[in-house]
């Protein structure tokens, strides 16, 4: 059997692309089509963690009924207590020099 001429093979490929409506790209140039073809991954990504309802979130929903958040209350009162005893968080540094001084003190 004689070898088929490359030109005829190319013509066949072009015709096949026409019939099946695919892109004719004999030199395999990168057209970036794969970035358009791929499915969007965002919608499934945001569903990974189950929705959790916390007390703070419930209170922020804007209903008339509010729940007392005891854990938050305890945390705030602990912070107040620490501040009263002078064990609170240090003041925020206003300048780079101040920041350096604070880190040296430690």
């Amino acid at each position: 059997m004689a070898a088929i001429a490359p030109a005829r093979l190319a013509a066949l490929t072009r015709m096949r692309c026409e019939i099946f409506q695919t892109a004719y790209n004999p030199t395999s140039v990168r057209t970036g089509a794969k970035y358009l073809r791929a499915r969007l991954r965002g919608p499934s990504m945001i569903q990974y963690y189950p929705d959790e309802l916390s007390v703070a979130r419930f209170n922020r929903m804007g209903g008339d009924f509010k729940i007392q958040d005891w854990d938050e209350y305890q945390r705030l009162s602990d912070v107040e207590e620490k501040k009263r005893r002078g064990k609170g968080a240090p003041k925020k540094a206003k300048s780079p020099a101040e920041s350096r001084r604070q880190s040296r003190k430690r």
């Binding site: 990168r30 057209t31 970036g32 970035y35 969007l40 965002g42 919608p43 990504m45």
Partner: peptide, 17 residues
């Protein structure tokens, strides 16, 4: 999720020879 479509469009242009 918010930026995916825009990023894809830029990727398409940037990778298109």
């Amino acid at each position: 999720n918010a930026n995916e479509i825009l990023r894809r469009a830029y990727l398409y242009v940037a990778r298109n020879q």
